[in-house]
């Protein structure tokens, strides 16, 4: 991934057949898609209600905010950085959004404000990483504490209710499909095409692959990192737009372990933690897979006490299967 002409990611080997090239370029996405299909087939034979429209909505629309946040997270990880403060950020943004809506601001302002505020806060994080030369895990561990403690100090965890009905974006449907699904699909495709086909998008892969080489090739690495964090913050804001409007009450606290769920979706979705490879289609599929596993466990009556063990086990299996595939490919 060193030289600029290799920016195009994922890279294709021209001599192999089209199918082989697709499998090689999108192996992880295919593994996860296959896992989703297998899960749906197996579970629906045990309990056909699993495939009901409502349940598909619950799985996909109910977890779309995770997939959306994972898009931004994937970009950050592709450039070789990480953000462990995203859960706290979403908690803060949801509180701001809810309070704006209740205070009588126009609904669209309550929706849009998190996007800009998220971009601004993450921009600070990005600047500390790029220009302060701090490892992103250090900055975001610090931000996690600051955002979480700050939110508690300011709100005391008060419930926000009496939200205007027009605010409930995530409960609306367009053409029969819940809004969160539209958001998830459109943003995933847009981000995927943008990262694949624009110079900016491809530069993210170059920076993650080898920052020095990227710099030598004329990519403004520092500026790109700040911009990537800002885009990530904006995606956290869009995720908030869905997250905060799902219910008629908002509790101004930080959702527990949300950052872990989002990071897991990104990395299991094939975004290399070392930077440089992966797509947001993979992270979105992974977000759906985890949500589906959680739901499936209830449908097949796995003991609730063992639920998390089974989920952890399935995550490991997915990772190991993918690793076995990559190792085999590597040897070829």
């Amino acid at each position: 991934m060193a030289a600029p002409d290799l920016h195009a990611a994922p890279d294709f080997h021209p001599k192999r057949s089209l199918a082989a090239r697709i499998v090689s370029a999108y192996g992880q996405e295919i593994v996860i898609a296959a896992a989703i299909v297998a899960l749906f087939v197996v579970v629906s034979t045990i309990n056909p209600r699993f495939l009901g429209t409502n349940n598909l909505n619950t799985i996909i629309a109910g977890n779309a905010y995770i997939a959306v946040a994972a898009i931004g997270m994937s970009m950050v990880i592709i450039t070789g950085q990480i953000d462990v403060s995203v859960g706290a950020l979403i908690g803060v943004l949801a509180t701001i959004s809810g309070n704006l809506a209740v205070s009588g601001a126009p609904v669209w302002i309550a929706w849009i404000a998190p996007v800009f505020i998220g971009a601004a806060i993450s921009g600070v994080t990005g600047a500390l990483v790029a220009y302060g030369r701090l490892p992103s895990i250090v900055v975001t561990l610090g931000m996690l504490s600051i955002l979480k403690g700050g939110l508690v100090s300011v709100t005391g965890g008060a419930w926000i209710n009496h939200l205007p009905p027009a605010f409930q974006l995530a409960q609306q449907r367009w053409l029969g499909l819940p809004v969160p699904i539209w958001f998830m699909v459109a943003l995933t495709l847009l981000a995927f095409l943008w990262m694949r086909n624009t110079a900016f998008g491809r530069s993210l892969y170059a920076i993650g692959g080898n920052p020095e080489a990227a710099r030598a090739a004329g990519i403004p690495v520092e500026r790109r990192i700040v911009q990537t964090f800002m885009i990530h913050g904006a995606f956290a804001g869009i995720a908030t737009m869905i997250f905060a409007t799902q219910l008629r009450v908002i509790q101004s606290t930080v959702p527990p372990n949300l950052e872990l769920t989002i990071i897991t979706a990104s990395v299991i979705g094939g975004v290399s933690i070392l930077g440089g490879t992966g797509t947001v289609i993979g992270s979105t599929l992974a977000a759906i897979l985890f949500a589906a596993i959680g739901s499936a466990m209830i449908f097949v009556n796995v003991s609730a006490y063992w639920l998390r063990a089974v989920i952890g086990f399935l995550i490991l299996v997915t990772v190991l299967v993918d690793m076995a595939r990559r190792n085999r490919e590597f040897r070829q």
């Binding site: 619950t58 908002i250 527990p256 959680g294």
Partner: peptide, 11 residues
Amino acid sequence: DNILSFNQANT
């Protein structure tokens, strides 16, 4: 987690 509670109730 309120969204997880919502999803679990839906499930």
